[in-house]
């Protein structure tokens, strides 16, 4: 039942694609990244840490984005933007605000810090993959689009 979320994530990302004016076959491949990311998040549940789950999910979807970027010859950023949608801690942000209003300082701080942690981990995952790819790829890419 939990895995139904993967399907939801796919269609939610499809909506995201439309907002970003994506056209053509990418309307399938970009949301697929979001679904893959969330599937990995769920599969990593046995490790028992929400932060770690987010990290693994982000790393896998970043790799997916880089691979698709090479295969489909599109900028990787598009795949990333759409696929990160389900992992963005929208719920965390909301509950942080709600606890703040309710005057529940303990829960407010706890949720707020946790949300910050998740956001940081998302950025870290994306950065890790894209910097590794850039490092290994730099010389090759420069040759390919040699401007001289």
């Amino acid at each position: 039942m939990e895995y139904l979320q993967v399907v939801y994530a796919f269609f939610a990302c499809l909506g995201g694609c439309l907002i970003f004016n994506v056209r053509g076959k990418e309307l399938f491949f970009m949301p697929l990244g979001g679904a893959v990311g969330w599937l990995v998040y769920l599969l990593a549940a046995p490790f028992g840490s929400d932060i770690f789950q987010n990290f693994v999910g982000t790393v896998v979807l970043s790799v997916y984005a880089e691979v698709m970027a090479r295969l489909r010859r599109k900028p990787a950023t598009g795949y990333l933007l759409v696929a990160l949608f389900p992992l963005v801690p929208g719920g965390g942000i909301y509950y942080t605000m709600e606890y703040c209003i309710a005057g529940n300082t303990d829960l407010f701080l706890e949720t707020g810090l946790h949300t910050l942690g998740v956001a940081g981990v998302l950025a870290l995952g994306v950065l890790l993959v894209s910097s590794v790819v850039r490092m290994f790829n730099r010389s090759g890419w420069y040759r390919e689009t040699n401007c001289k």
């Binding site: 139904l4 979320q5 939801y8 994530a9 269609f11 939610a12 499809l14 909506g15 995201g16 694609c17 439309l18 907002i19 004016n21 949608f85 389900p86 929208g90 719920g91």
Partner: peptide, 23 residues
């Protein structure tokens, strides 16, 4: 071309509908 108003609204609806289920 960019997506028209109808498609944009559909996009908003898709996102909110499925994210509500998702959460």
């Amino acid at each position: 071309p960019v997506y028209g108003l109808f498609m944009q609204t559909v996009a908003f609806c898709l996102v909110s509908f499925f994210f509500t289920l998702f959460w």
